[in-house]
Every structure is written in structure tokens, then in C-alpha cells.
């Protein structure tokens, strides 16, 4: 222990890591501190330290601004994220299980197509989807965001590698010998064994829908349907100018509050984050 403490390399390492964490944490600290300030205080005094404490007043204004639309935005985000992630997790599990456990012609081709789709930049799909959806009157409906959110090639990829590695063939065979149908085998055996991977898929899809901005900003002009990301950017784009504009401190507080669900999710489900990221790197 004594020799370790005297080891200068160890202190240099610690110093570098501390500097790096300051870089990553200080902006978030600024966001937290600023959400407790009045609008005037934002423009004066030390940006990184508290001024007049107005957090609860800010919070009240966030939820009453523009007829209380903020809570509607949070509900919308939750509907898109929970609905989209739940459906896409089930669909991915079915597809991944089929790709892992049923040999058929064209299986590798199907899988490789799905893999390639992981690399398609999402904004490139959003523009044509907008045009297609406007032809069938889907623009400005919940479906405009929900339908594209139900497909997750990354989810299928994860489900397949997990099913291949952890669902034993013997277990499936045993189920068949007992006379269970394939759908039942999937529902009672496969889903249970794949549960940890399914949590990971749900989590990744939930986060990608909650944080999505490009797709909903194109699809939803009606602000009662918008998710919280699009709503807040709408407030921010008013630049605090004009009598009806949203003040900066309210935008900051709204931004801070909208990040809380994800930070909680991320802190409480760390294990599943890591398994998803690891799966990406073992290719």
C-alpha cells in the first residue's frame, strides 16, 4: 500500500481522470445550477454558482407555460418511447430467435441485410418517410413517430446473437418432444431465456426514441403531439425575444427536467447498458 501511494504514475493517472471528469461534468453542473436561477441572474454573476434560488418558481412556470403543454410533451415522449420500444422488442425477439434457431435458405442473406441496415443514417430515412406518410395522411398523427420506432435492426442483431449463444437446442427439442408447438416454445422457453437481452433491447430502443429529434420534428407540426425534445427546441428557437417568448431560465429548467427520466434509467440499469455495448464490440 505504501509503495503504491508513492508511485507517481498512479497520481498522474488520477490527475488526468479528474481533469477529464471535470470536462464531462461541469456543463451538466451548469445546467443544474442554472435551472435554479431567475432569468436576470442567468445573465449576471458566476455562471457556475447559485444565485437567487428560484427552482420551484421555474418548475411551476415550466408546467404552466403555454397552457401547461409541457406535461403533454412528457406524456407524448413516454407514449412514443414505451410503445415503440415494447413493440420493437417483441418483434426483434421473434426475428432474432428465428434467425438463430431455424435453418432456412436465405438466412444469412436476411441477417446480413439487417446488419447493413444498422449502418444506414437515420435522417436519410426521415425525409422519404415524411413524403410517404403525407401521401397516406399519417403525418401529424401518433403513428408517424410510432411506426418507424417499431423497427430496430440493432435489436434483431442483439436478439440473434443472444439466442444463438444462450438458448440450448436441447431445451427446444425437449419442448417439441413434449408436444409443444413452435409458438408456445417461443413464448414459454425462448422469451424467458432471452429476458436479459430483451431488457437491453428495450432500453436501447427506449433511449433512441426518447432522444430522437430529427424524425418527430419533420412529422409533427401540431405541438400537442410533439415529444419533449421537439417542444423544448421550439421554445429555445424563440430566443427569448418578444412578449410571448419563453425566458431562457424556463428553457434551461425544462431541458433539465426532460433529462431526468433517462439519467434515472441509465443509473438503475447500468448492467444492461454494458451488455448492449459489449455485444457491439465482439464482432
Amino acid at each position: 500500500m505504501n509503495t503504491a501511494l508513492r508511485n507517481p504514475a498512479r497520481w498522474v493517472t488520477l490527475g488526468v481522470l479528474v481533469v477529464a471528469s471535470v470536462y464531462f461534468l461541469v456543463p451538466v453542473w451548469w445546467l443544474l445550477v442554472s435551472s435554479t436561477k431567475t432569468n436576470a441572474d442567468l445573465f449576471s454573476g458566476n455562471g457556475f454558482w447559485f444565485g437567487h434560488f428560484a427552482f420551484f418558481a421555474n418548475l411551476r412556470q415550466v408546467f404552466t407555460q403555454q397552457g401547461g403543454i409541457y406535461s403533454q410533451w412528457l406524456v407524448n415522449s413516454a407514449v412514443y418511447a414505451v410503445g415503440g420500444a415494447a413493440v420493437s422488442t417483441l418483434i426483434s425477439a421473434l426475428a432474432g430467435f428465428a434467425l438463430a434457431k431455424y435453418p432456412f435458405r436465405g438466412r444469412e442473406f436476411t441477417f446480413n441485410t439487417v446488419l447493413a441496415a444498422v449502418l444506414v443514417p437515420q435522417p436519410l430515412l426521415a425525409i422519404p418517410l415524411y413524403l410517404m406518410f403525407s401521401k397516406v395522411q399519417l403525418v401529424n398523427t401518433y403513428w408517424a413517430v410510432l411506426l418507424p420506432s417499431m423497427v430496430s435492426p440493432f435489436g434483431v442483431y442483439l436478439a440473434r446473437i443472444y439466442a444463438a449463444a444462450s438458448v440450448p437446442d436441447e431445451l427446444l427439442e425437449a419442448g417439441r418432444i413434449d408436444g409443444a408447438g413452435e409458438v408456445r416454445i417461443f413464448g414459454t422457453i425462448a422469451l424467458r431465456v432471452m429476458a436479459p437481452a430483451l431488457v437491453t433491447i428495450f432500453l436501447f430502443q427506449f433511449v433512441s426514441i426518447w432522444t430522437n429529434y430529427l424524425l418527430p420534428v419533420l412529422m409533427l407540426a401540431n405541438d400537442r403531439l410533439q415529444p419533449v425534445t421537439v417542444g423544448i427546441v421550439g421554445w429555445q428557437s424563440q430566443r427569448g425575444i418578444g412578449p410571448t417568448a419563453v425566458p431562457f431560465n424556463i428553457v434551461v429548467t425544462a431541458a433539465m427536467v426532460s433529462a431526468i427520466p433517462l439519467v434515472v434509467l441509465f443509473l438503475s440499469l447500468q448492467r444492461f447498458w454494458r451488455s448492449g455495448l459489449t455485444a457491439g464490440s465482439v464482432k
Binding site: 456543463p27 445546467l31 429529434y213 425534445t229 423544448i232 427546441v233 428553457v251 426532460s258 433517462l262 443509473l267
Partner: peptide, 10 residues
């Protein structure tokens, strides 16, 4: 863990 646009607004 912060949504991309929230980080960008910040």
C-alpha cells in the same frame, strides 16, 4: 444519458 438535443441546447 442526456438526449442529444438537450446537450446541444445546453
Amino acid at each position: 444519458a442526456l438526449p442529444g438535443v438537450i446537450g446541444a441546447i445546453m
